[in-house]
Simulated scan of single mutants.
Amino acid sequence: MSNQQKASEKDQELPLISHLVELRQRLMYVLLIIFGVFLGLFYFANDLYTYLSTPLTALLPEGTSMIATDVTSPFFAPFKLTLVAAIFVAMPFILHQIWGFIAPGLYQHEKKFAVPLLASSIFLFYAGIAFAYFVVFPLIFGFFTSVGPENVAVMTDISSYLNFVLKLFFAFGIVFEIPIATLLLIWSGAATVKGLRNKRAYVIVGCFVLGMLLTPPDVISQSLLALPMWLLFEAGIILGVIFVKPTKDEEDGDADDSEEKNDDDDYTYEEDFERTMRDMKD
């Protein structure tokens, strides 16, 4: 192999190696910031769990409380909550590192479009968590604690409760990103505003199916997730109309559809009969 070929292969390998080195460095930054936030929050681990369990404990019957059915639960449940809370708190920094890694590969107009989307995605993620805590939890726990038999005391295990609420936090945090996902589909050309509007009925059905899969098996939590999903989808369409200009092909397609519709409206059976008679004479 000639020296020139070796040099060309080396030039091709360097960009990949440099990207991997940068990715490793940014992952180390992410882990360090999560670890730092975790150390700062761990002292308040029990207080965090008390605050998280307030929507349920406020509705428990008098004389009952949450329980720990596992020996290690009193330690590992607050520990797990603190770790997840550290990730949630560090989410802006994590997304910033992701943005710093992919930004060099974007064009200038793409960067101008991506920065507001990044900030909006952070806000919507936290908004989904807040909606779950302040709106969904009181309704769900109020329903669950009121429908049980009178001779059964509601005493929830702390680990089961934590897994339940974290699942809902994650579900609502992701669901509230629907406007961003819808806007990206329209902006990238993978979908159009008209096409998404035509598929609205399928989207509504899909929202309730996802609500059934992502939430506990009850109608209340399913509806509380499905309805915001649908409204956020509509918000994404509105954002697509405002911020994404239709292409020339889409405008021509809309014009052709309107012309065909007008032709169909002006078309009568008498014209059809006359046209058929002329064809027979010919």
Results as ranks from 00 to 15, higher is better:
120 S>K: 12
210 L>M: 12
110 E>T: 05
206 G>Q: 01
19 H>C: 07
140 I>A: 10
66 M>V: 00
46 N>Y: 14
88 F>G: 13
251 E>I: 10
215 T>I: 03
41 L>N: 05
151 N>P: 13
30 V>M: 14
193 V>D: 01
178 I>L: 11
82 T>C: 07
153 A>D: 13
162 L>H: 03
95 L>F: 04
118 L>I: 12
157 D>F: 02
154 V>P: 15
144 F>K: 05
234 E>F: 05
167 K>L: 08
264 D>T: 08
161 Y>P: 01
241 V>N: 08
244 V>A: 08
87 I>C: 03
231 L>G: 04
263 D>C: 11
215 T>V: 04
194 K>I: 06
146 S>A: 11
24 R>N: 04
172 F>M: 00
132 A>N: 10
64 T>Q: 14
276 T>Y: 08
42 F>W: 06
142 G>F: 02
216 P>F: 05
282 D>E: 13
192 T>N: 12
48 L>Q: 05
281 K>S: 04
147 V>S: 12
167 K>F: 10
160 S>T: 08
34 I>R: 01
149 P>F: 06
228 P>V: 00
242 I>V: 07
270 E>M: 12
96 H>W: 15
3 N>V: 08
222 Q>R: 14
249 D>K: 15
220 I>Q: 13
86 A>F: 06
137 F>G: 00
86 A>T: 03
25 Q>Y: 05
267 Y>M: 15
205 V>L: 12
257 D>V: 08
249 D>H: 11
12 Q>G: 10
40 G>I: 09
104 P>Y: 03
